[in-house]
Design a binder for these strands. Sequence first.
DNA 1: CGCTTATGAGAAAACGCTTTCTCGGTAGTG
DNA 2: CACTACCGAGAAAGCGTTTTCTCATAAGCG
Lengths: 354, 354
Amino acid sequence: MARGTYERQAMVRRSATGRIGIAEVAVKAGVSHATVSRVMNGNFTVDPEIAARVRAAAAELKYQPNPVGRSLALGKTDTIGIVVPDLANPTFQAILRGLSRAAAQDGYRVLIADSFEVSSEEAILAGEARRRCDGLVLCAPRMSDAELEEIVPSLHPLVLINRTTTAADVPSLVVDYGQGVQDLAGHLVDLGHTRLAFLAGPPRSASNGLRLQGLEAFKADHPQVEVLMLEGGSDFDTGHEAVDAVLDSGATGILAFNDLVAMGLMSGLHERGVDVPGDISVTGFDDIPFARYTTPALTTAAVPITELGQQAWEQMRALIRKEENDAPGSRYQPRLEIRASSGPAKAPRTATHG
Amino acid sequence: MARGTYERQAMVRRSATGRIGIAEVAVKAGVSHATVSRVMNGNFTVDPEIAARVRAAAAELKYQPNPVGRSLALGKTDTIGIVVPDLANPTFQAILRGLSRAAAQDGYRVLIADSFEVSSEEAILAGEARRRCDGLVLCAPRMSDAELEEIVPSLHPLVLINRTTTAADVPSLVVDYGQGVQDLAGHLVDLGHTRLAFLAGPPRSASNGLRLQGLEAFKADHPQVEVLMLEGGSDFDTGHEAVDAVLDSGATGILAFNDLVAMGLMSGLHERGVDVPGDISVTGFDDIPFARYTTPALTTAAVPITELGQQAWEQMRALIRKEENDAPGSRYQPRLEIRASSGPAKAPRTATHG
DNA sequence: CGCTTATGAGAAAACGCTTTCTCGGTAGTG
DNA sequence: CACTACCGAGAAAGCGTTTTCTCATAAGCG
């Protein structure tokens, strides 16, 4: 109080924008804004007495630094972006959740961008999100390999999920869908099924491609087993609508693209009076939380999906901090989760019904 | 080309940050950055020939304006924030999705903040998110009324979901859970049930409070019906673990807090060999997409949840644009969705079992 | 006691953009 | 032909911070 010069005015005039800025605090504390900034950032080259005065003024005015100004000065936003093809998909929701939680732990926020499965939008969304953030997680992009390779360099720091690139410094987290689908098919064959059908996912989905490759390998290993391909999608309705095609196929073991499709299919089969797994065995993929609660509980391949979101953040953090990353990316093995929706094959069915 | 003075240097020197900025474009086009800015923003007071030159330079350098600088200058971020108590909850996921989609249509992005049901974190998260964004959607906050009232003024523009405030200019979107639960209870009574049990949700949840109020009203209207209260939560496991309590209660009609709890409960009852709806009728709440695919399909009260997310954006947009809003907030009536999980009551059960 | 070296805080530049202000130049009008 | 009006583009001032630079003051040392 010795100086007595500060806080001349009782009323604080707010800046043009109406919000309290560093300038108001500086005036109230009788110091320059540089000093206020130093205090707010814990710079110890400030006289403790003055620091206390600044802190008091800041507290009284409820001053909170403007993050935009801060971002501009520091060149970072403490925000990362994520682009997903479909926010309605539990898989992407789980990744988002894992990512968001892990990032929050380190003081980062997450900006989301949903491409609604419109692959032509992805590059634009990704670019915009990236410029607003310190890094980007590109989740199962539907764009072509060529397009991906083209935009990847401009997106760094970048973490890819379920997609790979030749570019350096771009960690990829991929799930081994090929192996997973082979495990599921193997499980069905062990149960005596000899005629399987695969209910495929979205054509542009890379993970669908991996499943198809896995099934090719499986067919090569098991020449005695028939594996049919049926068109599909990635949601409930797809599975529900596939009932006729499934019954027509005469297959007794159905590999659905994912759990959602499997649930839709089971629901449809139930309506038709077809017993699962008595008449037909059904398997899903992902092991979403709902899978264990369906009736019958769904046999599926469990993907450690929330962990994947978290891992995405770990990789991103390493990139942002420019740390040496010993394991740039990783490969996740699905774990076979045998439940009640798969059972022994009954007498072979014929290809036509009704 | 008449001037011939621009583009003196073949090599463009990038700014300190390494990224291409407005300055590089200005140099390449031989104009000031003011002019570049004007061209980029479609200001028509620029000579068409110069504008073309600027556009060419921008395209060649792949110039994209830095959103942070832009935000600082314009005082807006084209981003809104949303705070949810639990990103794992399908209800909040759906709200997020509806919000994100609607906002994207108007060129806005969404920043998410998950409080993980830690109510003490909500105020901080909300404040931080708000400062980074042009507005905030506060979704079913768990904080006390007092705390809510205290922080609300500093959060404007603000849209509340499933919570109300006395502050002006804060639209509230609330679902009439009280009416919905009465409808469900009425449905069960119509089926002959006289002993109901309510599997409650999280204690701090306002929507749980509304359900309890609704049930009080219901009890007053139906003195002959017993309505028991059981402790619960909001997820699968809660429902699953409640099996014993439900069976002990002797109730034949169970009102679960939401669809998740109902599904967990049905799964548990199935494991115990209890028939739904033969022995016990179960109802959910929300009508999440999965509800129609459970076995038996779940009777529930449908909440137009994605529409709610969209409405949240409509309100937010009106606030941001400072439009007059004729309907600040709205009240949503759940729609009874009768499916197979509810059926006629069988002979009354005794309070003890086993 | 005078010179050099810390120390601490203000002035100013920087971050990248938008926008007001300013002014040279051209066209239009009496 | 002179004077005003207008148009288009550059200069410069913001937006709200952080950080470097600079300088006054005080302390340390011979």
